[in-house]
Design a protein around this nucleic acid. Sequence first.
DNA 1: GAGCCGTGGAC
DNA 2: TGTCCAAGGCT
Length: 354
Amino acid sequence: MTDRFADKLLTWYDQHGRHDLPWHHDRNAYRVWVSEIMLQQTQVATVIPYFEAFMARFPTVHDLAGAPVDDVLSHWSGLGYYARARNLHKAAKQVVEEFGGKFPQDPEALESLTGIGRSTAAAIVAQAFGKRAAILDGNVKRVLARYHAVPGWPGQTAVLKRLWEHAEAHTPEERVTDYTQAIMDLGATVCTRSRPDCEACPVKSGCQAHARGETALYPGSRPKKAKPEKTTWMVILEDSDGRILLERRPPSGIWGGLWSLPELDPAFGPEELSEACEQQLGMNCGDPELISGFRHTFSHYHLHIQPVRLPVTGNTTVSDSDRLCWLHRDEALALGLPAPIRSLLTEPEQAALL
DNA sequence: GAGCCGTGGAC
DNA sequence: TGTCCAAGGCT
């Protein structure tokens, strides 16, 4: 049912919305899907160049399904949340094998694809197929929490449930594609997290938070928790030809599946690194040289990265070529390394300041 | 339900 | 400089 909220929003959208984002061109389910996955927990400006490059390399779901996963991961390098890339690749195969290369149009079937949950399924249904489906991303949560003065942190199930109910109630039958884009645009450009521009808001008159002068109270903030501190060694092994030893990380965990510098257990002391290196990497090394370390903050913990150079004294033959490889710096960077490791190899002074 | 998974922008 | 968190989903 179309209510006044949707009408006002659509009128505003016609004049002030974002109508020319890359995934709005040549719109199809594949392009919408890839954009939605990239946009999870990631801002539009960050996604745009990745989306363009990804589409140039993988124009169709068949191109993606047939590509090596390493190729997909290297195009994801720097975007973060690399499980998204592995799931995207897996889901592309699912679309080809289980759905004949055509995306299903109902949310339930879409949610059977790896990496697509309730919100992303709804976004694809509305954006690609023009069918009615309510979305609830970070922007919509903020808009609705303020409009209805919904207290509490949206991470709580009860709060989330109320927001979904409001989202469903406001979603119109007509112009669903524009409406979903409109409410996200309002959240991104007007109803922003800090200092919202309420005077420019088309639904100001009905907004309970604005009426109370309490927009800053909504949505409620996440409970604070201390981040644990962790430490690790990052090994820079360089042979006489200037090649660096890289190690593929395990499929799960931080930077899962990415190539990176070999990591040694922090339980090893500096004098034990040569021996650890021989055990773990099969390389004979001389005395370690410590480089200035730096701290990198993740969502859930702080990681002290301590780089260490270890001169290779023996031969540089690798025993496990699927896990280990020697590459020059530019070749390594083309693989797609984790961002802090990339900075460490390109600008060691900058990395130390992180 | 709660923890985990990245990076960069905004403040 | 540190904190928060953004077009969430999986385990």
